[in-house]
């Protein structure tokens, strides 16, 4: 796999020998960043697991307040967005600028759909008085630690939601760059590394869904 065309070389920063080295370095850097993301969320997963081991009943009772259908739909939406993200790389590898753009737009649309569904879930809970922390006023769950479950729920889904929003920004940036014709089969590093990020956001949801919604 040699990339010796001048179009390729123009993307190579001065301190790299060639495009291959630069691509590998960028990708490795992104994977290391993903490691930090996994451990960042990891602290919340640890808190979740420890409290679940302490109060299994709480989790069973509180989880009934979460809407499984909406959670399942969101899972599907994110999986589909992961597919379109991967397909945009596939299209870029085939020098298909138009398809790359379409797949990126579909990914953004899915991310928005995810956030809209999340919005309805949140507002429904707020309506019932299910807030994080001190503002929690819901009386439907007969457990002294009920507010802690929802604190963890809001922290986990909230942090995930922030990552989705950041993802929307990044993918939109890719779309703009793609419109300018920045990507081709020899250079698509930004799509590749944003793609890795986006798939990680998907993976975290893949775990959040059964852990929060599917308890009985």
């Amino acid at each position: 796999m040699s990339h010796n065309s001048s179009a390729v070389q123009s993307h190579v920063a001065h301190h790299f020998v060639d495009s291959e080295q630069q691509f590998d370095a960028a990708k490795f850097g992104m994977w290391i960043f993903l490691v930090t993301e996994i451990l960042f969320f990891g602290g919340l997963f640890a808190a979740y697991i420890i409290y679940r081991a302490w109060y299994p009943d709480l989790y069973t009772m509180a989880s009934t307040q979460l809407d499984t259908t909406m959670g399942a739909i969101n899972t599907g939406v994110l999986i589909f967005s992961s597919l379109t993200m991967a397909l945009s790389i596939w299209a870029a590898q085939h020098n298909d600028k138009k398809k790359t753009g379409i797949f990126l737009l579909v990914t953004i649309a899915c991310a928005f759909a995810f956030m809209v569904i999340k919005y309805f879930e949140y507002t429904h809970k707020f309506h019932l008085g299910i807030f994080p922390g001190e503002a929690y006023t819901f009386t439907g769950i007969d457990h002294p630690k009920a507010h802690i479950f929802f604190s963890i729920y809001y922290m986990m889904t909230g942090l995930h939601g922030i990552h989705v929003i950041i993802g929307i920004g990044l993918i939109f940036w890719l779309w703009m760059k793609n419109n300018k014709g920045s990507f081709n089969s020899a250079y698509y590093t930004p799509i590749e590394i944003v793609g890795l990020y986006w798939h990680l956001v998907d993976i975290i949801w893949i775990f959040l869904f059964p852990l929060l919604y599917l308890i009985d």
Binding site: V35, T36, E37, I38, L39, F40, F41, G42, G43, L44, A47, Y51, P132, G133, E134, A135, P144, K145, H147, I148, S151, I152, Y154, M155
Partner: peptide
């Protein structure tokens, strides 16, 4: 490997102070 865990811990501490989420404070459970 370690720094992200500090980051999330401090975020939770900030949340504990602002929203009183009750994960670390025994008075809140």
């Amino acid at each position: 490997l370690a720094t992200p865990v500090l980051a999330i811990t401090l975020m939770l501490l900030v949340m504990e102070r602002t929203l009183k989420i009750g994960i670390f404070d025994p008075a809140l459970g």
